[in-house]
Structures are given as structure tokens and as C-alpha cells.
């Protein structure tokens, strides 16, 4: 188990979703909204192209917490705000700072950034230590 201390950073998580990731995640999650898997459709509705599923990006925020805390059972709560759009084939960096520790729990403030823009902000995680 990680020993998290207030004001410390959790280990940064970096991942570059490959070209076909949105197809695999659509199958895994059941979310086949064409904005994620059909380039032509995405452009037709005014997007730059296929965009990432917000809940896939939230899963990266969750993974940064469970890896920092020592496993899936430690993540007790996660809230996020989706902003902007994530796209395939560009690195995403998840970084978090421990806000407070007490009563066997830690609260971690986290963001996910891609190309210098926050695509998830104000993420707040509660970890059981």
C-alpha cells in the first residue's frame, strides 16, 4: 500500500490511445455512439474527427488512483467534469495531488491533459488507505 501524504503528487500516468482504441472501447463498454468510431459522421456533426469516450478518459483518471493506492478496492469515490474533447493518437497525462489525508482516507485532486488542454478537470478521488 502506498503511503500518501498531503500535498504530494501521485505518480503521473501517461497513455497514448492508438488509432483503433475507440473501436475496442466501444465494444468493451457497449457505447457505439458514432462520434467515437466514424470519422465522417464526427465531421458531419462539427467535430474535428472521432473523439475519445469521456468515460474511457475517466477510467485513466481512476487507474492513476488505483495504481497509487495499491489496487482497485481502494478507490471509494471519483467525480469528474468533462471539458473539451480527447482525440486518438495524442498522449494523455493524468496528474494528481493529495489534498488531504485523515481517518484512513485520502482525497486526491486530479486533471487529465492532452496537448496542453485539460480534458478532465476538477476530478476528486477518495481513496481508502
Amino acid at each position: 500500500m502506498a503511503d500518501l501524504k498531503s500535498a504530494e503528487q501521485i505518480p503521473q500516468l501517461s497513455i497514448t490511445p492508438d488509432k483503433y482504441l475507440t473501436n475496442r472501447y466501444a465494444g468493451a463498454s457497449g457505447d457505439f455512439n458514432p462520434i467515437h468510431i466514424d470519422e465522417e459522421f464526427a465531421r458531419a456533426v462539427g467535430l474535428p474527427g472521432r473523439i475519445l469516450h469521456g468515460l474511457w478518459t475517466m477510467a485513466q483518471v481512476a487507474r492513476a488512483q488505483t495504481e497509487a493506492a495499491g489496487g482497485p478496492a481502494h478507490l471509494k469515490r471519483l467525480s469528474v467534469q468533462f471539458r473539451g474533447m480527447g482525440v486518438p493518437e495524442q498522449e494523455i497525462v493524468v496528474s494528481g495531488t493529495v489534498r488531504e489525508v485523515g481517518d484512513g482516507r485520502a482525497v486526491v485532486d486530479t486533471v487529465a491533459e492532452q496537448a496542453g488542454k485539460q480534458i478532465i478537470r476538477n476530478a476528486e478521488a477518495e481513496l481508502e488507505l
Partner: peptide, 8 residues
């Protein structure tokens, strides 16, 4: 999708 929270 504006925001999301899960409590486990």
C-alpha cells in the same frame, strides 16, 4: 456528458 460521479 457534463460530469460523472461514482461511489463504490
Amino acid at each position: 456528458h457534463g460530469s460523472q460521479e461514482f461511489q463504490w
